[in-house]
């Protein structure tokens, strides 16, 4: 862990050094104004550009490695992206049955229930316990 931190610091310092190298010919006055770049300016500028780019890459790589290690150690939690909520299904209206049809459909069931309630305590013909008794025993 500490070695990656040292690497990050060194690479960040290199970025600063590269940036300074790029502006040094103009800051120190070795590059005359309104004139073509001298060989010294070209050398310093492009060397500085290279140093800055390589330093930036190194700093990013070391920082990413530190982050990876922190995640492995469980010191940093990876943020999970929130799943987009699925659109609610549009309710399909159930086919409407007329009340008369519904009553005729439910009539045998109601009749069976009534019969079962009136015969509570007795065994049914098929030998099974009445439905109400079963429910109460649960």
């Amino acid at each position: 862990m500490i070695r990656k931190f040292v690497g990050t610091v060194a690479a960040a310092l290199a970025v600063l050094a590269g940036l300074w190298l790029m502006i040094a010919p103009f800051a120190l006055g070795t590059q005359p104004e309104n004139a073509d770049w001298t060989s010294a300016t070209q050398s310093e500028f492009f060397s500085g550009l290279g140093v800055a780019v390589v330093g930036l890459i190194g700093a990013i790589c070391f920082a990413a490695a530190i982050y990876e290690e922190l995640v492995v150690r469980g010191l940093v939690e990876v943020r999970q992206r929130k799943a987009e909520p699925e659109p609610e299904p549009v309710p399909v209206p159930a086919p409407q049955a007329s009340s008369a049809e519904l009553a005729s459909l439910l009539a045998p069931l109601v009749e069976a229930l009534r019969e079962d309630l009136s015969n509570s305590g007795e065994h049914r013909r098929n030998g099974k316990a009445p439905l109400v008794g079963v429910e109460e025993n649960r």
Binding site: K4, G7, A11, G55, G58, C61, A65
Partner: peptide, 16 residues
Amino acid sequence: MKAKLGVIALVVLFLG
């Protein structure tokens, strides 16, 4: 892998 890239960058900086 990322740390290796960083080490390579350090070597290049040394040569620079």
